[in-house]
Design a protein around this nucleic acid. Structure first.
Lengths: 187, 187
DNA sequence: ATTTTTGTCGACTGTTTAGTCAATCAATGG
DNA sequence: CCATTGATTGACTAAACAGTCGACAAAAAT
């Protein structure tokens, strides 16, 4: 029965984002999830385990969404564009999850999650970028610098979108434009 | 006698970055600073006050450095370049402070610090960007979107630089290049 | 039918924590 | 030289916290 585990993760997510890791007692998480205190520790031996499990879970969700909705096609630019849009739309649809990720990666918890765990999902994407540089479409630079550049661009745009509510149409136009800007930066 | 206040801020900075806000008891901060527990609360009535004071203090330091080292000159591109470089070099020289800022802005604490406090320092910079758009040098877009784009670019580059140690010469070359990339994105 | 495993509960605990307080101490100023 | 003010101390406390435990229930396995 994984149902309660899910409830705990969901409750933890909301509380962490609102009050921070420090300001969220496990007791409140259990209460919010509608389970007993002990149940929480049955699934997550320590609070840290819970935090990290939540991170891994969310990263997986996002990863699945992107790989499902942004297929790799022959054209590099189109592939990249699809991945870019998919990432942004996922983030827009999951603002709470996004905030959690932000909070997590800025915290010392990040160092507790294995590097491979982080790298695993993004490997195909890295190879895509590398190919783009090999065929001289994309500017030559260390591939993980390029990745950092793209990631922080997405983070930035998303933060802007979160803080400036606007109609869907306008939102879409902005996202579409911003990819062009990104593209002109890296080519 | 502001000396002890400074000692407390310095101790807090190091501990927060290493253990996070939650993982750092006020008692350890006082101990590390070499002052009594009560002294800490004499200067900062609550732990939250301390965290926020530290944020404001660091933001001020950074702001001073940039305005001192990156004068506004007639040429927009050069002015922007100077500000860009100054920001990055400050961040490179103050990795701990930078990490703290990252952690802070991702945390719920951010909402406790008045918006004006945040906006105050960057106002001249915003006006600079607005002027660049008015004279059609820079792409037309909401000015705070442009600001977000530049900020996250700097954050990204800095994160890369922190995680990939390299000789000063190479570092400088990369920073110089990355400004060109940024410039090609926003013009 | 009986044992074993697994999930669930919530009262409980030992520790840790933010914050208090009454008592000194240092400095300033009238 | 005293009075007032502000800085400093560290022992103290009340509350909050992460995590434990023994009991019970439900399901699975034998």
């Amino acid at each position: 029965m994984e149902e309660k585990k899910q409830l705990i993760l969901e409750a933890a997510l909301g509380l962490f984002v609102t009050y921070g890791f420090h300001g969220t007692p496990t007791s409140k998480i259990a209460q919010e999830a509608g389970v007993a205190n002990g149940t929480l520790f049955h699934y997550f031996p320590t609070k840290e385990d819970l935090v990290i499990a939540l991170y891994v879970d969310i990263k997986n969700q996002m990863g699945c969404y992107v790989t499902d909705n942004a297929p790799i096609v022959p054209n590099l630019r189109e592939t990249l564009r699809k991945q870019y849009l998919a990432s942004l739309y996922w983030a827009l649809d999951h603002p709470t999850e996004f905030r959690f990720i932000e909070q997590f990666v800025a915290s010392p918890y990040l160092q507790k999650v294995a590097a491979e765990e982080v790298q695993k999902r993004i490997k195909p994407f890295m190879e895509l970028l590398q190919k783009g540089m090999d065929e001289k479409t994309i500017r030559t630079m260390p591939v993980d610098l390029l990745f950092t550049l793209i990631s922080s661009h997405i983070y930035g745009i998303n933060n802007y979108l979160i803080n400036h509510q606007m109609p869907k149409v306008q939102e879409h136009a902005l996202i579409s434009d911003s990819f062009e800007w990104l593209w002109s930066m890296i080519t």
